[in-house]
Design a protein around this nucleic acid. Structure first.
Length: 598
RNA sequence: GGGGUCGUAGUUCAGCUGGAUAGAACGCCGGCCUGUCACGCCGGAGGUCGCGAGUUCGAGUCUCGUCGGCCCCGCCA
């Protein structure tokens, strides 16, 4: 039987939100509106928990107060929308509900208006919902009614609001840049938008407004920011969505220190506002090289130690062939010591081995230090000298365990960085309440891409080299460091930026190093190079992942929790079913034929 | 593109080495109930076991394929 409600709001004006009434309002007549969290029908009395974004209040339908509304209330079901008029009353002391902000009061209803009936919801609207994400995303509007969902969006809003206020106070101007723009080489795959007016040509959705913000500096804006949607057509992860939001900023006449200083001020204000935390300034800083050697990653989580230890020199020429072999081939032997980790079971060690194999490690060697003994598959191959060096490097004591990975540097770093994180979580070394902010600086400007057989930018092609390294650019480009900086929060890169190249000749030289010839440069970035030639000031900036920041600051597990309408891992919007087919007519207008291979 | 994992009632799950009528909880429907707030009590409905092949006397269970959710690798300057 379909329930249909036909009441209208009429001249009723809502008095306040459901979560607001308190004892001091007792006796007042209130009009409230909201959704039915729950109905408890006692035959004689009917209780309804009425919910809106502010919270829940109990409303009571008592036939002795108003028989008509009590009769009407019998039809009420979960998630119906209703408005009630009645008097706020104090609850009898024994019926006070301490769980509710409004638990000392309730509304005695004199009139009920049934505004809209709800279908039976597919899952209960509660914070501890166990509905799977599939269902929650399909019925996102129901999921959003959960206080936790609202909390995430609210925190995100307060964050962007504070950012805007802060940057405004520092003289930044928010400027919008195009969403329909030009596809550029380098970087991620572009989302393309076909042009109807120029069949066969395409706009691209921006991966970031990089060139536009630099051109705004050429335009004399001096301080720009934008909270802006960006698009990258790559595969998704828990921390990666195809469309995401950046705080993009840029400043003129600056060096890295100036940008870093501005950002520290902003982050400090943000943490104070959102978490009530006073951050200490300056934030800690690591060079890229130090971050890699101590943590194996350019975004270390400093909330716990477990630093990497280098055994490469200790194992040169070792009887342990996997170690000495790796070193001979130009690789490394590195490891981590877990104090008190000797009680890890064989199964756990096997799991850890499987874990590092994901990152290309061929094995995970270990030594358990027990009372007067070294338990290890490699123990019998270790010389006295090596044993001495291991003890010297690690200070290992009885009860500890040591892990080793020997391979080419990239594999060693990736495997151990991830192992370190994995162990940190598994062993409970990370306090959820801690926040660790860290700058990583002095990145290399370029790295060599063996697949493309050319140099590629570590940051992006517009990043300026460190002035002191400029002489190396011609002969040893891989040794050149850049004026780039990343801000890392709890092991997540939340922001990255650089001071840019503002001189056209240097920019051309750099594009050349990347294998982008004059011809291609002109076609792809001609407008930009031309702009640099008209008096581009020195400038630099940074961009932050707003979604990631919101995720971390709200303690969410996934980016999807802090995005109102996120995509599934296969890049589908489960609510709208996008992407979808389009009319043949639309395709024809665009001059597009679908040519799907078999 | 690859690996892992999950898919059984509206929801979350159980379902053993393949065996007869596929269960539970919550939700839903009906009845009773004036102080509940995860109300309670009584009764009831609800299933193409994601989909398609195959093996078998017999498949929710085994095999292959396929679709979808999630996690990861590759990818993401």
């Amino acid at each position: 039987m379909e329930r249909v409600f036909t009441d209208h709001l009429g001249d009723w004006k809502r008095s306040c939100y459901c979560g607001e009434p308190r004892v001091d309002g007792v006796g007042r007549e209130l009009i409230l509106g909201g959704w039915v969290q729950r109905r408890r029908d006692h035959g004689g009395l009917i209780f309804v928990d009425l919910r809106d974004r502010s919270g829940v209040i109990q409303v009571v339908f008592n036939p002795e107060i108003d028989p008509a509304s009590h009769e009407k209330a019998k039809q009420i079901r979960s998630e119906d929308v209703l408005a009630v008029r009645g008097s706020l009353t104090k609850r009898p002391p024994e019926t006070v509900n301490r769980e509710l902000s409004t638990g000392e009061v309730e509304l005695s209803v004199r009139e009920l208006r049934l505004l809209n009936a709800s279908q039976v919801p597919p899952f209960l609207i509660e914070d501890e919902t166990d509905a799977n994400e599939n269902t929650r995303l399909k019925y996102r509007y129901l999921d959003l009614r959960r206080p936790q969902s609202l909390g995430h969006l609210l925190l995100r809003y307060r964050m962007t609001k504070k950012i805007r206020d802060y940057l405004d106070s520092k003289g930044f101007i928010e400027v919008e840049t195009p969403v329909l723009t030009k596809s550029t080489p380098e970087g991620a795959r572009d989302y393309l938008v076909p042009s109807r007016i120029y069949p066969g040509k395409f706009y691209a959705l921006p991966q970031s407004p990089q060139l536009f913000k630099q051109i705004l500096m050429v335009g004399g804006l001096d301080r720009y920011f934008q909270i802006v949607r960006c698009f990258r057509d790559e595969d998704l992860r828990a921390d990666r969505q195809p469309e995401f939001t950046q705080l993009d900023m840029e400043m003129s006449f600056v060096q890295p220190e100036d940008v870093i200083d501005m950002v520290e001020g902003m982050m400090t204000a943000l943490f104070k506002e959102l978490k009530g935390i006073e951050l200490k300034r300056p934030f800690p800083r690591l060079s890229w090289e130090e971050a890699m050697s101590r943590y194996g990653t350019d975004k270390p989580d400093l909330r716990f130690s477990l630093e990497l230890i280098d055994f490469s020199s200790a194992f040169k020429g070792s009887q342990v062939k996997v170690f000495s072999g790796a070193i001979e081939k130009g690789g490394l032997v590195k490891g981590v010591k877990v104090a008190g980790g000797a009680n890890l079971s064989r199964k756990e060690l096997d799991d850890l081995t499987a874990f590092v194999s994901q990152y290309g490690a061929k094995g995970l060697a270990w030594i358990k230090f027990t009372e007067g003994d070294w338990q290890s598959p490699i123990a019998k191959f270790l010389s006295e000298k090596e044993r001495g060096e291991i003890l010297g490097l690690t200070g290992a004591k009885s009860g500890d365990i040591l892990f080793f990975v020997a391979d080419e540097p990239k594999v060693v770093y990736e495997a151990l960085a991830n192992l370190r994180l994995h162990l940190g979580e598994k062993l409970g070394l990370i306090s959820e309440k801690d926040y660790s902010l860290l700058w990583v600086v002095d990145f290399p400007l370029l790295e060599y891409d063996p697949e493309e057989k050319r140099h590629v930018s570590v940051h992006h092609p517009f990043t300026a080299p460190l002035e002191e390294d400029l002489p190396l650019l011609e002969k040893e480009p891989l040794k050149v460091r850049s004026k780039a900086y990343d801000l890392v929060l709890n092991g997540v890169e939340i922001g990255g930026g650089s001071v840019r190249i503002h001189q056209v000749e240097l920019q051309k030289q750099l594009l050349g190093l990347l294998g982008i010839g004059a011809e291609e440069a002109k076609e792809k970035f001609g407008f930009f190079l031309e702009a640099l030639g008209f008096g581009a000031p020195p400038h630099g900036g940074i961009a932050f992942g707003i979604d990631r920041m919101a995720m971390i600051l709200s303690g969410a597990r996934s980016l999807r929790d802090v995005i109102a309408f996120p995509k599934s891992q296969r890049a589908v919007c489960l609510l709208t079913d996008a992407p979808s087919s389009v009319d043949a007519r639309q395709l024809k207008e665009l001059g597009i034929k679908i040519a799907l291979g078999d």
